[in-house]
Design a protein around this nucleic acid. Structure first.
Lengths: 144, 144
DNA sequence: TCACAGTCGTTAGCTTAACTAATGAGCCTG
DNA sequence: CAGGCTCATTAGTTAAGCTAACGACTGTGA
């Protein structure tokens, strides 16, 4: 387990390929249900942030405001998101996940993790430890 | 750097979070151009495999055959993919990336890798080595 | 040998998700 | 307090996915 010198330009394509492919697989393992990937993603961001305006949520999701309007409308229809007026600015709206929204989210989370957890269980301790360290570095990269 | 025991059920959410977030970031870094993500993905798979039937390509891309028909049609319009009849089976078609398709692909690849390569360059040698080993494990997971 | 069941790719028609442009309500500054 | 800006939404378009159905072709069993 000696550390090889790894040129970034060579690691980048390999890592990217691994990530995009694994991402597809994980997405496919999503359970049947009436929530789409987009809605799920928005609801997750909302839950993590606590409360956001549509604009902020759109920025986080890298989506245009009109798109977020539609996503939020669908989530609201199902009672997963609550829309309250902004206390001081009459133009703005405050979005927050309802208790129902948070519950649905946890259910999805569990199902989505299942596939991956099964695969991880088949690895060696050493491999899992490598992935654990890698996950930390990757999260840091994504934040940057 | 001692290997900690890592329960799969705990690693799964962390790894998944890291992967989905990083995946979003990498996708956002794609250059302006008239190729969509879907088309790009299909063209990449086709280039990697060399030559495939529509059905095979649809399976790889995890898409239904009619969807692949449309994707291929658009790629063919732009001259990036060539469609030739199967030598023995009159029902089948053989798809292959043209020289132009491969050239466009390399251009996109470079631009997409750039963002990630920049970030990777800022890491330590040890961190890059961890990611290299992780990438191998992840690719194996995605294949499973 | 040839009828027929199965496969392959495609077409048709629908839903969802994204975009840009335009609109209306509300805020704030000169 | 008028005009310009921001925020959210509406309207309309395009892309991407699906299922159902079809037409061409293959290959097998009687």
């Amino acid at each position: 387990m000696t550390a090889k010198r790894v040129p970034p330009a060579q690691l980048a394509p390999q890592l990217r390929d691994a990530i995009t492919r694994l991402n597809r697989r994980v997405r496919q393992a999503r359970p049947v249900g009436d929530l789409t990937v987009t809605q799920l993603s928005a609801l997750t961001s909302l839950k993590l942030a606590g409360a956001l305006t549509p604009r902020e949520l759109a920025d986080i999701e890298r989506v245009q405001p009109p798109t977020m309007t539609k996503i939020v409308a669908k989530l609201e229809e199902r009672g997963l998101v609550q829309r309250t007026p902004h206390p001081t600015d009459g133009r703005q709206v405050i979005l927050a996940a309802t208790a129902g929204g948070r519950a649905v989210l946890e259910q999805f989370e569990r199902a989505r993790n299942e596939w991956l957890a099964d695969r991880l269980a088949a690895l060696t301790e050493g491999e899992r430890d490598t992935l654990r360290r890698a996950a930390e570095i990757l999260q840091q990269l994504a934040r940057a």
